[in-house]
């Protein structure tokens, strides 16, 4: 947790918001508590490792700008995710235009401990390949439900889709994942 400056962003934001609204969470607290979620989400939405920094930063710049408008009607994570997916979507569009080469399938953060990493890395590789193979709308539902433990109504809100649609996307994604796991079963068993 960052030390909160007595005259920092928080007060500016809170002071500029209309009185009728609930107290807006402090920006640095949002960053501290939700950076991991935003980072993971961007990554799982298919942002290449070398672009993650810029995308994460961009997302939080939007958050910084919009936080005063957060109304508490949705959960903060839902709200953050909605911003993240818009930023990522923009990024992917422009990255397609600009990037002639494909990024390396290597993780950016190399601070993980060596032991046990091979298995985890492999599981992650499988998961990423699987996520990449999914249609966008199934991928995000799968990630939010299975990896972020969001409820279907929350996912519906985060992805601006009807709840029933969320359920059906999730069902399809789960079936696809089971098939993927079956394909990799022998390999995982051998190496774990």
């Amino acid at each position: 947790m960052l030390a909160v400056s007595p005259s920092g962003t928080n007060e500016e934001i809170e002071a500029s918001g209309p009185r009728s609204r609930p107290v807006v969470p402090a920006f640095d607290r949002v960053y501290e508590e939700h950076f991991d979620f935003v980072w993971r989400s961007a990554r799982r939405l298919g942002v290449a490792d070398e672009a993650l920094d810029d995308v994460a930063q961009e997302i939080f710049l939007v958050v910084h700008r919009k936080l005063a408008e957060f109304e508490g009607r949705s959960s903060l994570r839902t709200w953050l995710y909605a911003i993240a997916r818009r930023v990522v979507s923009d990024h992917r569009r422009s990255a397609r235009r600009k990037r002639p080469h494909t990024p390396l399938p290597e993780t950016l953060s190399s601070t993980a401990t060596p032991h046990g990493d091979a298995v985890r890395q492999q599981a992650a590789t499988i998961l990423h390949a699987f996520l990449e193979s999914l249609p966008d709308e199934q991928r995000e539902v799968f990630v939010l439900a299975e990896l972020e433990q969001m409820t279907a109504p929350e996912i519906a809100e985060a992805t601006a889709a009807p709840v029933n649609t969320v359920y059906s996307r999730l069902r399809l994604a789960r079936q696809a994942f089971e098939r993927c796991v079956a394909r990799h079963r022998a390999r995982l068993g051998r190496e774990s």
């Binding site: 990554r43 994460a56 993780t107 953060s109 601070t111 890395q121 599981a123 992650a124 998961l127 995982l188």
Partner: peptide, 14 residues
């Protein structure tokens, strides 16, 4: 598999 893989997307402190 999800449990094993889930930590891999977390950011480092860096």
């Amino acid at each position: 598999l999800l449990t094993i893989a889930s930590g891999a997307d977390d950011p480092s402190i860096d």
